[in-house]
Design a protein around this nucleic acid. Structure first.
Lengths: 264, 264
DNA sequence: CGATTGCAGATTGTTGACAATCTACACCCC
DNA sequence: GGGGTGTAGATTGTCAACAATCTGCAATCG
């Protein structure tokens, strides 16, 4: 198993500043150090590392190692680990260590279903509350996604897709929904071995996106909700296909789930 | 503000057992002490105290105090605090302390909306996957709820209602959905100043519950989803009413939310 | 008399050290 | 030679002490 060392200068520019505390750069960040404790900083840095793929799923996180590389002691690191465990990004095994969580196909499948439910609600809400400006912004996203798809830039497409969906949920104005949604997407991020990697599916995804925005713009709540729901479930199907899992036969939406109990 | 002291013998029966570790009762729990670290125990105990109302919203939690009363040092307590913060039950203020979170009406409102989305999905799924045994179990719940309502036992009713809904989500077989649902309900629990307190609404709630089970039993996914969605939104309305908040005029379902943006 | 400043006590943030546990490797016995 | 056993090293769990920060009160000055 690969011993995790983490970049030596991951956070050292921030840590000393927080420690000396007496002298701060200038009239700069006054309330910034207020809300940022050491455990918070460590948590955020580890989260960044995990979500960026710098720390792969299954990797072991060494307490002392992380503490050293970040220039803090083990206490704050342990606190950060607890928070990350609760947010679902790492798994704690008593006396064994902490590991970046590995999401199984079955679990990813579950997450997709929950996401579909949240996104359907998002679509319904936006169909009623979205302003013309909002719609213009969404169309801007789609335009950029089309350009990215045209030049087969999967990375850029992925990022735009991420931002597009995040923005949709944000504009519902429901902070709790956004927090819930982001937690799920983060966990799903642990799983993405480039699900929509092969650029063949990009045009399909783009068409679905356009459908979503059109339905939102039309003000038809039910239709917009259905469009978003189906889009997420279609993504789920694409995921299942690329992972060779036996997809439930039939239509992707609420069919063929007779023995759902089994998937525990 | 009331200084929290917590019951002196809150956990001491468990703590020493975990510490001496050499001698365990009998051939009893071998793998139990394996998975239960001190921070986990503290977290669970504090969670229980908060959800049971033993610690009221807004109360300050003293690190040393909690550590003393639970017979551990401050380290595990701090780790438990971090986990509880991430799960949304407490709020950490740097250099000020940790406080049991206080949920505003606006936030509770948001949570109800997210819950409605999840419950709608739950209803749809159960309409397709629930077995006759499941339906019988649900009807059992309703029967008991009716009896509790008949004798105006609001506490018993509340507990049954809680278990009923939890069981619904559990039987979908989607663990991630269940975890997400419970997190939201926990946070909502911080808010319950007996929303359905006055027993007048009990018959209404019961009628809605029967509707839900009937629709699930009928196998009509869309109708079951709608029944659960509407039930949650009706609960939301009852909550808003008892808190004197200005409920959005009009039908409770997806109407009159023209300026949703403002509720941030 | 009101506002500000300084101080004392209490509380939180962080650290390093010690104890318990696990892992891996070498050794021994059959 | 194979399987079990014991020990050394490394890693995690827990703790107590030190440093930094905050809160409340009292004294002082305008």
């Amino acid at each position: 198993m690969p011993r995790i060392v983490a970049k030596p200068r991951a956070l050292p520019t921030a840590a000393p500043a927080a420690r000396s505390a007496t002298r701060r750069p200038a009239g700069a960040t006054i309330a910034l150090v207020q809300s940022n404790s050491l455990p918070m900083l460590v948590q955020r840095e580890l989260e960044r590392m995990i979500l960026s793929g710098e720390l792969v799923a299954g990797a072991k996180l060494n307490e002392a190692g992380v503490a050293d590389s970040l220039g803090v002691s083990r206490g704050p690191v342990r606190e950060a680990f607890r928070a990350l465990e609760e947010s679902g990004l790492v798994r704690l095994e008593k006396n064994r260590g902490v590991f970046v969580r590995r999401i199984s196909v079955a679990e990813a499948d579950e997450i997709y279903e929950v996401r579909a439910a949240l996104d359907e609600w998002t679509g319904r809400r936006l169909a009623q509350s979205a302003t013309p400006d909002d719609v213009r912004e969404f169309r801007g996203f789609i335009e950029r996604m089309e350009r990215a798809a045209a030049r087969n830039d999967v990375d850029a497409y992925w990022r735009l897709n991420f931002d597009f969906h995040d923005r949709l949920v944000t504009l519902t104005g429901n902070a709790k929904l956004l927090a819930t949604y982001r937690r799920l997407v983060n966990e799903l991020g642990l799983f993405r071995r480039q699900t929509l990697a092969h650029s063949g599916t990009l045009p399909i995804s783009t068409r679905e996106h356009r459908e979503i925005v059109d339905k939102i713009a039309s003000g038809n709540a039910a239709a917009a909700g259905r469009a978003l729901h189906d889009h997420v479930m279609a993504s789920r199907e694409r995921m299942l296909k690329t992972h060779g899992a036996v997809s439930v036969a039939g239509a992707p939406r609420l069919l063929g789930v007779v023995n759902a109990r089994k998937q525990r």
